[in-house]
Each structure stands twice: as C-alpha cells, then as structure tokens.
Design a protein around this nucleic acid. Structure first.
Length: 217
DNA sequence: ACATTAAGTGATT
DNA sequence: AATCACTTAATGT
C-alpha cells in the first residue's frame, strides 16, 4: 500500500508536528493503519484488549468510564485531531484490559499503531518519548479538572461545561444528542438535564430542538 | 392513522 | 437531585 503509506506520512506531518524525526515519521507511515469510524461507533470498549495506539487525525472522540457494578457511565473528556489516547499507552504496555470506552462522536479518522512498536520507539526516538509524555501530562491536567468538576460543581455548571467541551471538540455549535444521552454522560437523570436545558433556553443561551441543541452565547 | 421515541411537568422523597 | 407517573410533541412506518 504505497499510497496509504505516503498518505499517512503527510497526515503525520500535518497533524503531529511534535513528531519531528523523519525516521520516526517514516516508521509510523509504514506500520500505521489508517482507520475510519462513523459517528456513534464504539472504537474501544471496556475490558477489551488494546492492540493499537491511536493517533487521531480528525473528528471527535468521547472517552468515558463505566462503573463496574451497574453500568453507570461517566464522561471523562473528548479527544480531537492531534490527540492520542494516553490510556492506551499504559494499557498496551502492561497488557491490561481497557478501563475506558472510546466512542466516536463525529466521523473520525485515525492512525492505528500496533502496540509492539509503541514501546521500542520510546528509547529509539526522542520526539516519540516527548510526545507520549506530553500527552500524559495533558490528560492528567484534564482529569484533575474532571475530578474537581464532579466533586465541587453543581449540575448546571457541569452541563454548561459539557456543552462547551462538546462544541470545542466538534467545532460546531450544533450538538446532536438526546437529553437522555447527555444525562448518561454526566451520570444524571434525564429529567434533571431537561429542566436545566429549559432554563438555559429561557436565559437565551441555547436553542432546543428534538435530538439537538444549538449553543448561542 | 398509529406506534414509538423524545421531551416537559408536577409531585414525592 | 432522583424517581415516578404521567402528558405532550415529534417522527417513523
């Protein structure tokens, strides 16, 4: 697949400028697989073994955690083009099952790197190591914010941040989701979400429609 | 027209 | 803020 290889090379250079070493770029292009997911598709489910580390080119991915007992789901954060899934690094290096679920919110394109390379590149390429470390750092910061939000913020604030995050992730002020889906993401009841959204609508911050919410601000 | 699914509402805890 | 028990509205067949 000569065509795909040179394609990936271009995509890496375009979307992952941090990965500077030419030799590394070429290796990624060689072993990486270009993958597409449609909106709503689950990319990686809980407790599945991870065989690839994704480099996200375009799209939007929702990363969520599920309670072991009664399937209660909680959104952690969104990933976009230029991001990677930090969780997948540890998971694959330790050969552990995934602790999270990743689901495409929008049509998403990513480069999947087979795990066997991920580890060896750490010592082989400085920019790979930096890239991995930096993405860890970013995720860690993000996670601390999530904890703060869950612990200290009321539902209306959390909802607003959720809508904001979703807008930033998809780059669109139109959010396609039911109140029920949002409620699952925030681990709240559908009624609570409906009421809070109504309030936001009255305040002129959103426009509600069936299966969709438009952010005005 | 009818059934299904999403959203709105009030009462209760 | 959750749950329940509805009602109303929008959509699909």
């Amino acid at each position: 697949m000569i065509l795909e290889t040179s394609n990936i090379l271009k995509l890496i250079q375009q979307h992952f400028p941090q990965i500077g070493e030419k030799a590394l770029q070429e290796e990624i292009a060689e072993v990486g697989k270009l993958m597409h997911f449609r909106a709503g598709e689950i990319i990686m489910d809980f407790k599945s073994y991870i065989k690839m580390v994704p480099l996200i080119i375009t799209g939007s991915i929702k990363v969520s955690r599920e309670d072991d007992l009664e399937g209660r789901e909680m959104i952690l954060y969104f990933l976009n083009g230029g991001d990677t899934c930090s969780m997948s690094f540890t998971c694959c290096m330790m050969n552990k099952r995934s602790a999270i679920r990743t689901e495409a919110v929008e049509d998403t394109t990513l480069i999947g790197i087979p795990i066997k390379y991920v580890d060896s590149w750490m010592t082989k390429y400085q920019s790979w190591k930096n890239f991995v470390m930096l993405s860890y750092d970013n995720r860690m910061i993000e996670l601390v914010k999530v904890i703060d939000s869950i612990s200290f913020e009321s539902m209306d604030i959390r909802l607003k941040k959720y809508l904001e995050a979703r807008k930033n992730s998809t780059g669109s002020e139109l959010i396609k989701a039911t109140h029920q889906e949002i409620a699952y993401d925030l681990n709240a009841s559908r009624e609570a979400i409906s009421r809070l959204l109504k309030k936001l609508e009255h305040m002129g911050e959103v426009e509600l429609g069936r299966n969709q919410i438009r952010l005005l601000s």
